[in-house]
Design a protein around this nucleic acid. Structure first.
Lengths: 155, 155
DNA sequence: AGTAAAATCATCCTTAAGTATGACCTCCAG
DNA sequence: CTGGAGGTCATACTTAAGGATGATTTTACT
């Protein structure tokens, strides 16, 4: 019941206003017989009142235009997933073994540890690393790591 | 002249409408004498017409209501600008010199190069790096670099 | 003013890293 | 089938790096 009233509040108010005004008119009609030439004033006031009513109705009933604003919210991803630069890799022409050695060097492994992990001898790792340094145009493992990261060969 | 009309278009139209309707009323007034009991209909139509006029006026003159809906669009930025982990730095209690040495080591510099850049002797750098490795709990410069990056001490 | 931490330098020694060279094997394409 | 590339291993040498210890000087703070 209350919901019904809420929903049609404007319509009911309009109807009620009409009823009241018509009643007022009926009463005024009677007065008009007495007061001559007052009909114009009466009609004018009716016009004004209903114009105001119309304006009020319009303001009440018009639905607001919806305007969507898209706000770009930047989210900084700490992840920064690594994408290997295949282009650079081709240019440098590193072999599989050299890449493996490079990765292990970057992890801080010693030559001996690398040799153990790859099941080869220490001299083998030395030759690999030497060739690697030559291709990377460096002469220290630390430089190799720095350059490899800069060239996006490793994360 | 045209601008004036444009500016006060609504007002002029309103005035004109009023004039027309008053003229109409005058004419109807005459008719009412003939047709009995038609005053109510006449008044009613006046009310309806002016209500409509009011609505029209309101719609024309009032600024359209705006309701802004903010939609957040998530943009994933891969930037991940480096922020030094001050917390870790405090825990490790590294001195200024040790940090400087760490940074240069990370850049691939040799001890001799670091000594030259910092205007100190090679043994000094060795002591610094030794203490640095001790604090970082590593025993190779490459490990130090790897760990420092992992702990977000350096980019 | 005195003390602790930081910074500097040195020496001695060990180990890891880097360089050079040569040899051997395997696989694959010309 | 043969030569080149990749991989393996070895030896010998040089240099850089790392560890241990001690000493002196700066700096900062109570």
């Amino acid at each position: 019941m209350r919901e019904f009233f809420q929903k049609y509040k404007s319509t009911i108010l309009y109807g009620f206003s009409l009823a009241v005004l018509l009643f007022l008119m009926k009463w005024l009609e009677f007065r008009l017989i007495v007061i001559d030439h007052a009909l114009e004033i009466y009609i004018g006031s009716i016009a004004v009142v209903f114009t105001a009513l119309g304006i009020w109705l319009a303001l009440k009933l018009t639905k607001p235009k919806k305007e969507t604003i898209i706000v770009e919210k930047e989210i900084y991803v700490n992840d920064a997933e690594f994408v290997q630069d295949r282009n650079q890799l081709e240019k440098l022409n590193l072999s599989k073994r050299e890449m493996e050695v490079l990765e292990l060097i970057a992890q801080g492994c010693s030559n001996q540890e690398i040799a153990s992990q790859l099941f080869v001898s220490l001299p083998t790792i030395k030759t690999h690393s030497s060739k690697l340094f030559e291709k990377l145009d460096v002469n220290r493992r630390t430089q190799a790591v720095e350059k490899a990261k800069r060239l996006k060969l490793i994360p």
